[in-house]
Computed example of a mutant assay.
Amino acid sequence: MATDGSKQSLAAARQLRAFADPQKVDEVVIVAVVSPRAAVPFANELGPRRKAGAAPVELSFRAEATAALDVVAADFDGWGPTIVKKIRSGSPAAEIVRAAEQLEADLVVVASGGKGLSDTILLGSTAQRIQHSAPCPVLVCRPVKRSR
């Protein structure tokens, strides 16, 4: 399960819980990838909100990624399987594929429409790259459109 700190990645985690049988899942590894060359910090929409107009604080990509991992992991509390949180550094698609290979993953779950560098450039292409390179099936969870 990959998170980029977006609400869509939390929704993807919930979709995984909705269809997967916790009796048949041994472990869920939640991965956040910090890109050291990113022009913007880890796009964490899941952690605590900062007050508008507050004095600037030093942004920590790792701290933001940790906060996002904690929120997604908390959504799996009481579900059954062991939950493992991992932070990796590098290109999101490459690191998610590398993690899937190293962990011998049975499934990779990613959200489409997250908040990386750009909705269309980063996550759209990130999900696409993962689909083409992953050593296992990839579930790409699209945001659910709400009727008005």
Rank of each mutant, 00 (worst) to 15 (best):
L69T: 15
A20L: 10
A55T: 14
E27I: 03
Q15M: 11
T120G: 04
G113L: 04
V71N: 02
D119A: 05
D75M: 07
V72P: 07
T66M: 12
I121A: 09
K145T: 07
A65V: 08
L103G: 03
L139F: 08
A55S: 15
A39R: 10
A99N: 05
S133R: 14
A105Y: 01
C136A: 13
E58S: 11
M1F: 13
S6Y: 00
I130L: 06
A65Y: 00
A2P: 01
H132A: 11
V33R: 01
I87R: 01
R146W: 06
R49A: 15
M1R: 02
A73D: 09
G5D: 08
V144D: 05
L59M: 04
A105D: 10
I83T: 14
E64Y: 06
C136S: 11
G78W: 15
L10R: 11
T126Q: 07
P143T: 05
R37T: 15
P48K: 13
P143W: 02
V109K: 02
V31T: 13
V33T: 04
A99W: 01
G116K: 03
D119R: 14
A74E: 15
L59E: 14
G114R: 00
F76K: 06
Q131Y: 02
R148L: 14
A67K: 12
E45C: 03
Q131G: 12
S6W: 01
L123E: 01
A55N: 08
Q102R: 14
V110E: 00
S60I: 02
Q8Y: 11
R148W: 12
G90C: 05
E95D: 06
R148P: 13
D70I: 04
G113P: 08
P143H: 00
E95P: 04
P92M: 10
D75T: 11
L69W: 02
A68Y: 00
K145W: 09
P81D: 13
Q128N: 10
R98C: 10
V72D: 09
T120S: 06
A18L: 04
R98K: 12
A11P: 09
K115L: 08
G114C: 03
A32S: 08
V108N: 12
V110S: 02
D75P: 06
V25L: 10
V108W: 05
I83V: 15
F61G: 12
E104R: 12
A11L: 08
V40H: 09
V140E: 04
P135L: 05
A32I: 10
R148D: 15
E64T: 00
P81Q: 05
G124W: 04
E104Y: 00
S118C: 01
K24T: 12
T3I: 09
F19K: 01
